[in-house]
Design a protein around this nucleic acid. Sequence first.
RNA 1: UCUUCAGUAGCUCAAUGGCAGAGCAUUCGGCUGUUAACCGAAGGGUUGUAGGUUCGAGUCCUACCUGAGGAGCCA
Length: 531
Amino acid sequence: MFCASPRRRLSRADRSSPLLNKLGCTLAAFVVQSKQFPVARNNCAKTVAVHVAARCALDWKVRCDGKRRRPESLLIMSEESVTDDLEVTKNTPPVATIAEIGRHEGQSVTLRGWLYNSRESGKLLFPIFRDGTGSIQGVAHVKSVTPEVFEKLKGLTQESSVIVTGKVRADKRAPGGYELDVEDVHVVQRVPESDPYPITLKEHGVDFLQERRHLWVRSPRQSAILRIRAEIMRAAAEYFDSNGFIRTDPPILTPAACEGTSTLFPVDYFGDPAYLTQSGQLYIESTALALGKVYSFGPTFRAEKSKTRRHLTEFWMIEPEVAYMDLDGLMELAENFITHVIESVLKNRAPELHVIGRDAAKLEAIKAPFPKLRYDEAAEMLNQAYKDGKLEAPFEYGNDFGSPDETWLSSQYDRPVMVHRYPANVKAFYMDPDAKDPRYALCVDVLAPEGYGEIIGGSQRVSSYELLSSRIDQHKLPRAAFEWYLDLRRYGSVPHSGFGMGIERLVAWVCALDHVRETIPFPRMLNRMYP
RNA sequence: UCUUCAGUAGCUCAAUGGCAGAGCAUUCGGCUGUUAACCGAAGGGUUGUAGGUUCGAGUCCUACCUGAGGAGCCA
């Protein structure tokens, strides 16, 4: 058996191959011509047969059964094995995914997956299978399958890996709408009773689950969250890619602090000190002045000893940076960007939102423009809230907002709220002062609704060499390490702006999770490095 | 760094200072439509660690360890 790389187009002759009919499966059998396996037009079944599995992923568009399909894998059987394998192919129903099982109603299919759970009622077995795309309940009656299959299924343990064949049947009682009447089962690996799968369908504590994160990701809820995360990352990159941005990723190993504030992870770089990046911002300011509109997308590291539901020590950030963009342009960019990501999740991950019990109506309300508040206005609201007894601590004008302040502010709106023009002295050294009143910085924080706090922080950057130079001195930053950054103001400096968005906080909000640890496959936290 | 809470069976949790318990999981038995199935039975314990108070400590006290939430800081 050979694996073929699916680069060729199918010819008309392939599509009308008699093999399709011969094999009698809707999705899957083709004859392919190639130099490696020359075939005669009308005699191809004897030389090379290609079985295109029904699951999908590759870039082929195959026409069969009147519909376009995207086959996932294909096996080319050698000349010698054609006869035998054709028999096998005849007898093995096409591989299907549970997510798309409805296309096979009334037909026999092969599922490759795991046993999620098993119930039994006397002579009736109800094994529930999952395959990564979803789950489906199988039904096996002692009289409907061979005794061998019945016994195999009866003693099967949770999370054993199985290849199961059966007939798809629509059933009103089934949560997914379909059930599988089991015909045959092949147990790939059986989990032993003596050491059963640790994560049962009952409740578990946070610590227990986190110690077993490598298994926890199999649970329906965690899988759904990771699917939503993937969609958020895809849609985020898509927004910038399709709006003229060039992705330029900054280094992860850096010689010095980017912002001079956060705590960094030191690493030994051939005997010299180096640090894991806490932000790519300074570097993409450079590429923005080279390419105009750029973004970066990658992991960042903060060694702060924060243990809250909003913090990870390793998290992913997407950061756009645009030459000649001012703060107003940046705020518009941020709201359009978030709107696009939310729309994509609603469009492409509705089933997953349902699995995790997320109220989609709350996300449907997320449309640009977002409410915008000056820092002063927000401060006034917080003072009033304190007077009304809605906040425990009074807000001190001139400070940055605390977590309870952010939570209260964001809970006042049904969409993200943008707070801009903070006092310059509580913000980073690279933020441009407002020309109308230099006590304020041209910066913006985007606070997610429902109390999820800051998801975006951005600003217009200082473009004056003199100002930046004096700021670096004021903040007592190591000047030598910032010479290259000052060069950006020596040579063709322009106003420019950018923001950073933390992926995990966005995922936590979109999924309405209690904690960011569930938003990333393997969270890294203050007290957690395993697995 | 500060602060609050928690640690008992594989898991989730009970137990007034007085015999160490339940549900789930595992094993065995029963059930022809179960939805975290159900019913019956069995096995399963150095109560985080080290001290202390007490006739007697899972329970009270001290220290430490581990975990969780919050503050600060941040995305």
